[in-house]
C-alpha cells in the first residue's frame, strides 16, 4: 500500500531521524574524530624532525621482510610468529586449566590453582630468565626461541584460564539444567550450550590479553631473538636515530594490534547471536 509508506512508523516518531540514519551519523562522527586525533599525532611527530630516509632504509628489516643473518625470522614477522605460537599454546593450556578449576576432582583443582597462582604471581621477565637459565642446570637445555615460547605460553595460559573460568561461571545454571533435562551428555553441553554462550563473554578480555601478549613478546629479545623491539633498539643505538626507530617500532606494534582488534570485533559479532544490543 503506497499510503503506508508516507506514515511515520512507531520506530521513528515525526521529527526524529530513523535508526539507520542515526547510526550512520554516529559512525561518521567516530571516523572524523579518529582522523583529527591521527593528524594531531602526526603533527606532534613532525615536530621531532625525523630522518625518514633512515626509517625507509631500515623498514624492511624491522618488518622482517628479510631473514636474519643466521637465516631465521626477524623483526615484526618474528614477533607475529612468537605471538601466534604462544597464543595457540596458551589457549590449550588455559582450557585444560579452566576445566581443572571447575572440576570436582581435588587433584585437578589443586594442580590448576597452583599453576595459575604461580604463573600469575611472578613477573614474566623472571619466568623467561628462569626457564632459559635455570632449566639447563637440571639437564634441560632449551634454545632462546623455545624458552621464550614456553614462558609466554605458561604465563598467558594462567591469565587466560581465569578469563575462561569467569566466562563459564557467568552462564546461568538453568542453561545447564535445561540441557541435562534434554539428556544431553556433558561434553555436548559444554560444546553446544554453555561453551558458545561463554565465548561471547570470553572474547573481549581474551582479545585484550592477546594484544598485551603481542607487546610482551618483546621480552624474548633478552634471549637473543631479533624481534621487532630488539632490532629497533639496536639500530637506534648504532645510528643515534632513537626517535625514528622507536616510533617506527611503536607504529608497527600498533598496526598489528589493530588487526587483532578487528579480528576480535568480528568474533564478537559472530558469537553475539541472539543477544539484544
Amino acid at each position: 500500500m503506497a499510503i503506508d509508506a508516507e506514515v511515520p512508523t512507531a520506530a521513528s516518531p515525526p521529527g526524529a531521524a530513523p535508526v539507520a540514519a542515526r547510526r550512520s551519523y554516529f559512525r561518521q562522527q567516530v571516523w572524523a574524530t579518529w582522523f583529527v586525533l591521527v593528524v594531531l599525532l602526526a603533527w606532534g611527530c613532525h615536530g621531532l624532525q625525523l630522518d625518514f630516509a633512515y626509517v625507509a632504509e631500515k623498514l624492511p628489516f624491522l618488518l622482517g621482510l628479510r631473514l636474519a643473518p643466521d637465516g631465521f625470522l626477524q623483526g615484526a614477522v618474528l614477533t607475529i610468529f612468537v605471538t601466534a605460537v604462544s597464543m595457540i599454546c596458551a589457549l590449550g593450556i588455559a582450557v585444560i586449566t579452566a576445566a581443572g578449576r571447575l572440576s570436582d576432582n581435588p587433584v585437578a583443582f589443586a594442580l590448576a590453582t597452583f599453576y595459575a597462582s604461580l604463573f600469575r604471581g611472578t613477573p614474566l621477565l623472571v619466568q623467561v630468565l628462569i626457564i632459559y637459565l635455570a632449566l639447563p642446570q637440571i639437564g634441560v637445555v632449551l634454545g632462546g626461541l623455545a624458552s621464550g615460547l614456553i614462558a609466554l605460553s605458561l604465563n598467558y595460559g594462567a591469565y587466560l584460564a581465569e578469563t575462561i573460568r569467569s566466562g563459564m561461571m557467568a552462564i546461568p545454571l538453568g542453561q545447564r539444567e535445561a540441557a541435562l533435562a534434554l539428556s544431553l551428555p556433558r561434553w555436548l553441553i559444554v560444546w553446544k550450550v554453555t561453551g558458545p554462550q561463554a565465548l561471547r563473554l570470553i572474547i573481549p578480555p581474551a582479545g585484550a590479553l592477546f594484544v598485551s601478549m603481542l607487546k610482551d613478546s618483546s621480552l624474548v629479545s633478552i634471549l637473543g631473538l631479533w624481534e621487532l623491539n630488539f632490532l629497533a633498539q639496536s639500530y637506534a643505538r648504532a645510528s643515534f636515530h632513537y626517535m625514528e626507530m622507536l616510533l617506527a617500532a611503536a607504529l608497527i606494534y600498533w598496526a598489528l594490534s589493530i588487526v587483532f582488534e578487528i579480528a576480535q570485533f568480528r568474533l564478537e559479532r559472530r558469537f553475539g547471536k541472539g543477544v539484544a544490543r
Binding site: 535445561a178 547471536k273 541472539g274
Partner: peptide, 18 residues
Amino acid sequence: RVRSEVGMVFQSFNLFPH
C-alpha cells in the same frame, strides 16, 4: 537414559539464547 524419557519445562523457560 532416564532423562531422555522425561521432558521438563522450567519456570524460567531456559531456552538456549544463542
